[in-house]
């Protein structure tokens, strides 16, 4: 039986680039809604999108929807989200309770293992 194709969206940009913030969530939601096993992995600047009030504060344009809309859209479509624990805890001083519900901490080994799977397509944002 053919292995199921997986999409992995690696997000390294954060609140410093709000115009880039929505795209990975939206495309991940698309892949998941097409039936693909879909993951997002936040590292470097990426965890800042999930920290504190960022989901409600970050907007692509002043009159635009808050980032939370697309985060919830992705989670509702069963996108699995992981956040680099080192980036989050060292750079962003995030604790165990600082991630939105449905997002888990993970390490470099998890990302490398997933990316090395020949059935995984990796998008880097």
């Amino acid at each position: 039986m053919e292995a199921k194709k997986r999409f992995l969206f690696v997000v390294s940009t954060g609140v410093n680039e709000p115009k880039k913030a929505f795209t990975p969530f939206y495309y991940a939601a698309a892949a998941a809604s097409m039936g693909y096993d879909t993951h997002m992995f936040f590292l470097a600047e990426g965890p800042s999108l999930l920290k504190g009030d960022a989901p409600d504060r970050v907007r692509t344009t002043e009159e635009g929807e808050p980032l939370r809309k697309v985060i919830e859209l992705a989670l509702r479509n069963n996108v699995k989200m992981m956040c680099c624990s080192t980036s989050a805890k060292v750079i962003w001083k995030m604790g165990d309770g600082d991630l939105p519900k449905g997002v888990d901490y993970a390490g470099a080994v998890t990302l490398i293992e997933m990316a090395s799977d020949p059935n995984t397509v990796v998008f880097y944002f």
């Binding site: 939601a29 698309a30 809604s33 097409m34 039936g35 929807e65 859209l73 509702r76 479509n77």
Partner: peptide, 11 residues
């Protein structure tokens, strides 16, 4: 089917 609108994406 997969449905896409300006603010929604879902099966």
């Amino acid at each position: 089917a997969t449905v896409e609108s300006a603010k929604y994406m879902g099966p």
